[in-house]
Each structure stands twice: as structure tokens, then as C-alpha cells.
Amino acid sequence: MQLYNKLSAKEREALIEEAGEDRLTLSFYAYAKIGNPQLFRNHLFLAWDQMDVLGRIYVAHEGINAQLSVPAKNFDVFKKFIDEIYFLENVRLNIAIEHDAKAFLKLKVKVRKKIVADGLNDASFDVTNRGIHVDAEKFNALLDDPDTVLVDMRNHYESEIGHFKGAITPDVDTFRDSLPIIEEDLKDYKEDKNLVMYCTGGIRCEKASAYYKHKGFKKVFQLEGGIIEYARQVEKQNLENKFLGKNFVFDHRRSERISEDVIAHCHQCGKACDTHVNCANEACHLLFIQCEECAMEMNNCCSEECMKINSLPFEEQKALRKGKGNSNKIFKKGRSEVLKYKV
């Protein structure tokens, strides 16, 4: 019984290229009580591996958080499978605006303590007492209300390349960092302001809205389906698009364009640019914004030091990074001292 990947990312990439078939990039989440996450995890892996589904999925006692790449030809089979799971029947699937057959190159289903690392003690408040879900049209109306405070629940590297007009964008590295900061900054608005939140697909707002209601905020709203669903509704209903720039996504695409606005800058020269890359030096792998000119000049690296390392033979590079891990430092691009034009 195969419960884990046997193919490398490169081997999978070659198979995808050879097949030449369309794949759909999508995501979904659901809070539910799962008695045995490991058993559920194995059930998902066995089924999805047979369907050639790829992606990153977290399973916990509190539910599931999934980001997937599904062969278009297998979508109906995939949908039937999840609909037969009682708490996933008719779950909202956030279908990407832009698809890439190589968005994911492995199927990773992991058991975690939580499906989103929020740092909260769920037993201390009612996690089901969530804020009011609003669609794109109602969301736009709330943004036009002078009594609305709009908050981006994402991290700094996400909001830097795209966010809604007038949004508060906390300068944080993680979701758990943002919760107490927002609470403190908005403490004077608990009674009379509309607290409106949004994130990529909605999952972070699910828990955050309940948390802020517990903390005394009276009028709490969240954008249903997040930026992904908002963009879809705006296009379908011909609504005003109040989002500026790109929506950051956690797959090989790194982002999808929601508007033509470019609101970020190359971290190396300051030129208007919103293209995220990872430093070509595998021992660094820093996530940062780099324009085409700097990519050529710096050989796709973030610094001269990384350029030197990246020019070494592969075996020497491998020896240098032996026993070292990148951890979450790869996301702290705005804090890296090697970048001249930081956040």
C-alpha cells in the first residue's frame, strides 16, 4: 500500500510535460471534528494518488486545509469523492483565476495540530461564532461605508504585491503575529465600526472573525471565499474591482494577477515590479521581488555572496548546505539586509 510519494519533483514535472494535459488549480477548507486525522489522511492520499491529484493538504482534529492541482479530466471523479465525505459535501472550491499544470509537483497530505497555525487556544472562545460572510457586491458596499475598517489578514510578503484599496496591511511574518497587533490597533473601534477582514481563500478569517467577536468587536464581517472568489464574482457580475495588484498564492505560480496595477518594487533596484522569486542559491532560497534586469545581472540570486555560491559545482554547494535548514527565514524578504529596497 503506497501512502507516500515515490516520484521526485523533477520526475513528476517530466510526466506532466509528457502528458500535456490541462490541470486545474484549486483550494478548499473545512472546519470539522475529525476523530482520527491519520486514518483520514491515509484515506485521502490513497484516493487522490489514484486520481493523479497533486498538492499540499493539512489535516487536523479541527478539519482540513487543501491546495491542489487536479487533472481536468478527473475533476468530476474528484468532486464526487469529496462530496461523499459528509463534512465536505458541496464545500466551496476556490478555483484559481490562472492555472498552471506545474502548480504542484507532489501530493503531500500531512497531519498537523491545526490546519492554520494561529497560536490560539480554541477552548477559550466559541470558534463557531464567526463574523458575517459577505459576497463581492456586499463587500464593495461595506468598503464605501466611512464606518468601515478594512483589515488584510495576510502576511507582509502577500499584501506587498496586492491588497484592497484602503486596507490596513499589518507588517507581520505570520498570521499568529497579526491577531494581537490588530486587536490593539483597533481597540477604539470595537463598538461602532465595521471590522471587515479578508485573506486569500477565507480560512484565516474564519477563525479570526470568531476571535475578534470574542474580544468584544460588535460588527465583524469577512469576505466569503477570500480574494480568489472575489475576483471571480467581480468578473462574472461586472462589479468594480477594488483590489490592486496580484494575489499571492502558495504554489509554484506564486501569484495570480487580479488587476493591472503594479504596487510593489524590485527589492534590488527599486523599479516597479511585483514578481516574486526564490534566490537561486538553494542554501538561501530567500523569497523576494526581482525584476528581469536584476535577475540577469544577479544570476537569479539575492546577493553577490549567493551568486558566488551558486556558481560553484553542485557537489560543493551541497556540501556547504549540509545540515543547514532554511526554515521560515526564506519568507522574511523585507527584513533581509542584502536587499537595498526593502519593505
Rank of each mutant, 00 (worst) to 15 (best):
M1P: 08
L7N: 13
L7F: 12
K10Y: 14
R12V: 15
L15G: 04
I16A: 07
F28C: 02
F28N: 05
G35E: 14
P37C: 10
R41M: 10
L46S: 09
A47T: 07
D52L: 05
L54I: 02
R56G: 00
H61E: 09
H61W: 01
I64C: 02
N65C: 06
Q67V: 09
L68S: 06
L68M: 10
S69Y: 07
V70F: 08
F75P: 01
V77D: 14
F78Y: 11
F81D: 12
I82K: 03
Y86E: 13
Y86Q: 12
I97F: 04
H99S: 07
A101Q: 04
K102C: 05
K114T: 14
I115T: 03
V127D: 01
T128D: 09
G131T: 02
G131K: 02
E137C: 03
F139P: 06
A141M: 12
L143I: 01
D144H: 13
V149L: 09
D152I: 12
D152C: 05
R154P: 01
T169R: 04
F175V: 11
R176G: 07
P180T: 08
I181W: 10
E184V: 00
D188K: 00
E191I: 01
K193L: 01
T200S: 12
K207Q: 08
V220S: 13
V220H: 11
F221A: 06
L223Q: 10
G225K: 12
I227P: 05
I227K: 08
I228K: 11
A231S: 14
K236Q: 10
E240A: 11
E240D: 15
N241H: 13
V249W: 05
F250D: 11
F250H: 13
D251P: 03
R253E: 00
E256G: 01
E256W: 04
V262D: 04
V262C: 09
C266K: 13
N278M: 07
N278S: 06
L286I: 01
L286V: 00
Q290P: 02
M296K: 14
N300G: 06
C301S: 06
C302F: 10
C306M: 03
I309T: 13
S311R: 06
L312M: 15
L312N: 11
F314I: 11
R321S: 12
G323W: 12
G323T: 12
K324G: 07
G325H: 15
G325M: 15
N326E: 15
S327H: 14
K329F: 15
I330A: 15
K333H: 10
G334V: 08
Y341A: 05
